[in-house]
Simulated scan of single mutants.
Amino acid sequence: MAAVDLGKVLDKAWADKDLPEILAAPVSALKGVSDRDGELLHEAFGVTTVADLAKVKYFHWAASLAALDAAAK
């Protein structure tokens, strides 16, 4: 598995946290996800944390479809 540059995917306040803290963090800890985005994700999918977001089946399905498309090219 490729390493993830946490500075590229997390807001600065979260980039130096350990993984359990990041997974328990609100989704707004992810770079580019606002507090309002977090509210909408909660309304739509019941997501409140980064770990919750990782479990949303629709995101898994979309990522799988994108991977299939990339592999076909």
Score class of each variant (00 low, 15 high):
Ala70Gln: 05
Lys8Ile: 10
Ala67Lys: 09
Ala67His: 11
Lys55Glu: 15
Phe45Arg: 00
Leu68Val: 08
Asp52Pro: 04
Val4Ser: 04
Asp5Glu: 15
Phe59Lys: 07
Leu23Tyr: 02
Val50Gln: 00
Val27Gly: 01
Thr48Lys: 02
Leu65Met: 06
Ala13Met: 04
Ala24Gly: 03
Ala54His: 06
Ala2Glu: 12
Ala54Tyr: 08
Thr49Met: 03
Pro26Phe: 03
Val27Asn: 02
Met1Thr: 11
Leu30His: 05
Leu68Trp: 05
Leu6Glu: 10
Leu65Gly: 02
Leu65Asn: 03
Asp16Glu: 05
Gly38Ser: 09
Leu23Ala: 05
Ala13Gly: 05
Leu6Cys: 07
Asp11Thr: 15
Asp5Gln: 07
Phe45Cys: 04
Ala2Ser: 13
Arg36Ile: 06
Leu53Arg: 11
Lys8Ser: 15
Met1Pro: 07
Lys55Arg: 14
Ala3Phe: 08
Val56Phe: 06
Phe59Trp: 15
Gly7Val: 12
Ser34Ala: 10
Ser64Phe: 10
Val47Ser: 02
Met1Ser: 14
Ala44Ser: 11
Asp5His: 12
Leu53Gly: 14
Gly7Lys: 14
Asp52Phe: 10
Ala70Lys: 12
Asp18Met: 07
Ala70Cys: 06
Asp16Arg: 04
Leu65Ile: 12
Leu40Ile: 14
Ala2Gln: 13
Trp14Cys: 03
Leu10Met: 07
Ala72Leu: 06
Tyr58Lys: 14
Ala67Arg: 07
Leu53Pro: 09
Val47Ile: 10
Glu21Trp: 01
Phe59Cys: 14
Thr48Gly: 01
Gly7Thr: 09
Asp37Leu: 03
Thr49Arg: 06
His60Gln: 13
Gly32Glu: 12
Leu68Asp: 03
Lys31Pro: 09
Ser64Gly: 07
Lys8Thr: 13
Leu40Asp: 15
Leu65His: 04
Lys12Glu: 14
Ile22Trp: 06
Asp18Ser: 04
Lys12His: 11
Asp37Phe: 02
Ala71Met: 11
Lys73His: 14
Ala13Lys: 13
Trp61Glu: 13
Ala29His: 00
Ala2Pro: 14
Asp35Ile: 11
Asp52Gln: 10
Phe45His: 07
Phe45Ile: 04
Leu53His: 08
Ala63Thr: 04
Asp37Ser: 13
Ala29Pro: 05
Leu30Ala: 12
Thr49Asp: 03
Trp14Tyr: 12
Ala62Glu: 14
Glu43His: 03
Ala51Met: 06
Ala67Leu: 09
Asp37Cys: 04
Ala66Ile: 13
Leu19Trp: 06
Glu21Val: 00
Val27Met: 05
Asp18Phe: 01
Lys12Tyr: 11
Val50His: 00
Lys17Asp: 02
Leu40Lys: 06
Glu43Ser: 02
Ala25Val: 05
Ala44Met: 12
Ala51Gly: 02
Val47Asp: 01
Val27Glu: 04
Val4Asn: 09
Asp5Pro: 13
Lys17Thr: 02
Leu6Val: 13
Ala71Gly: 05
Glu39Leu: 00
Ala54Ser: 12
Lys31Leu: 15
Tyr58Arg: 15
Ala66Leu: 11
Asp52Arg: 08
Ala70Phe: 09
Ser64Cys: 05
Asp11Gln: 14
Leu53Cys: 10
Met1Gly: 15
Gly7Ala: 12
His60Thr: 10
Val9Glu: 03
Ala24Asn: 08
Pro20Lys: 04
Trp14Asn: 05
Gly38Cys: 11
Lys73Arg: 05
His60Pro: 00
Gly32Asp: 12
Thr48Asn: 00
Val47Gly: 02
Arg36Asp: 10
Ile22Tyr: 07
Val33Asp: 11
